[in-house]
Amino acid sequence: MKVIKTTEIYVPLMETEYENHFGKFDTVLNELCGLSEKLYVVFYKDKKSSLKIERATNAQVKKYFQRKKEKKFTKYFLKFTTEYSFIDKEEIEFGLLAVTLITESYVKYLLIFLNIAKPGAFDSREGITIGTLNFETKTKVDKDVFPMLANTIHLSLNLVGKYKWPPIQELSINDTLKWFDKHWEAFTTMPKNRIERALNAFSYLFHDSLADTSPSDLFFSLVGIEALFVEGNESVQKQVAVKSQLLLGKRNEFKKKFKELYEFRSRYVHGQLNLINKYYLRDADTDLQDHLSKTYDNSNLAILILIASIQKHILLDKDELAFEFILKD
């Protein structure tokens, strides 16, 4: 008995600050859709399915997002599709549900790491996953929520003009994904090197709730940065300061700001800064807004440094970088 499982994932994308810093977002979507059926999702014993990527039609958007608030605030909707054929009992035991879960996992990673190639372009909201099972003359359809991957990367781009550092650029999606192919296992197993630890830290910058106002972006960005630049436990801040400039260019505009970034993180970690209740209700309290502003500012700077550093690894086609200090004449 042949059983075919088709998984369709519809993802709404927010309009972001991307176009204020780079090119047209339509061009980005065309570049991504140009890779349709050229990317592959691996399922069972190296059996795989091509991933079809396209813009959702108006009819599909109306059908699946008719009552969702995402439709009001989003302009773009993507559709991802895989198809898997079960041909024996062993494969069926592998799991009809597993095919959908693996497809969802791949699409999550794809949307997250597209933000390395096109910083801030992909800020998604809650979507929908549709699994269609066809066997003999019967069809079964299951629907589930595809989680949002909300992030503030596009807002962090505003700091590039303010601080003139680090250098952030657009990369080719195809070239970036080819580089990521070498590290794809790190997303499902333990990382093997520095860059894979940094990539996993980057994944924590994406949230399934808009209410997440914790300083976690600051913490995980610095985890990723230190994974790339720090050896041992000696002078962590100094290692990052020196090595990041060797990789990304010299900081001339804001030396004090970089020091403030680490002091801010340290005060948080050691309980010297007020930590806002996770479930607090937003209000217009001036002190509260000032505190949040400082948190976001430091978090966004750390996010930029992490993205710029990973981009540099991609451009140099490196997994790890070795640094050495030279005595001047």
Rank of each mutant, 00 (worst) to 15 (best):
T137N: 15
G34Q: 07
W179Y: 15
P166E: 13
S216T: 09
M14C: 14
V28D: 03
T189I: 06
F325S: 11
S49V: 02
L247I: 06
T188V: 12
S50P: 09
K47V: 10
F219C: 01
L149F: 05
A227R: 01
G34M: 09
L273N: 08
Y64P: 02
A198Q: 04
L218C: 04
K138I: 14
L306A: 03
N174G: 02
K164M: 14
S244K: 06
R282L: 12
T100R: 11
L97W: 11
S49N: 04
Y262R: 06
A201W: 01
K71N: 13
L32K: 01
Y10G: 00
E19L: 10
L261F: 06
T16G: 05
A322R: 14
S235K: 15
E83N: 13
W165V: 01
D317I: 00
L13Q: 10
K138N: 15
E234D: 15
I314W: 03
A198Y: 02
S203Y: 04
S50C: 13
H183Q: 07
I92A: 13
S216Y: 09
N200G: 05
E83R: 10
D142C: 09
Y44Q: 11
E37Q: 13
Y163Q: 07
S309H: 08
F43E: 01
T16N: 08
Y268A: 04
D317M: 06
E126H: 03
R194M: 06
E320D: 15
D297H: 12
Y44M: 07
G23W: 03
Q272R: 14
I307D: 07
S36V: 02
E260M: 07
F25S: 04
F202Y: 15
T27Q: 14
I168Q: 03
H207C: 08
G34H: 08
Y44R: 12
C33Y: 05
T129L: 09
K52I: 11
T100I: 01
P119L: 05
I153Q: 01
S156Y: 08
E196Q: 07
I310L: 14
V242I: 15
D290P: 00
Y44S: 04
L292T: 10
R125H: 11
T176L: 04
S299M: 04
H291K: 13
I303H: 02
E91A: 13
K243V: 03
V11Q: 06
L13Y: 02
K250A: 14
R267P: 00
A241N: 10
K47Y: 13
L288A: 03
I153R: 00
L228F: 07
L247K: 04
E126W: 11
W184F: 08
L159Y: 09
R125M: 11
D329L: 11
L133T: 12
S105A: 15
Y279E: 15
Y279V: 12
F146W: 09
F77L: 04
Q245A: 06
K108Y: 11
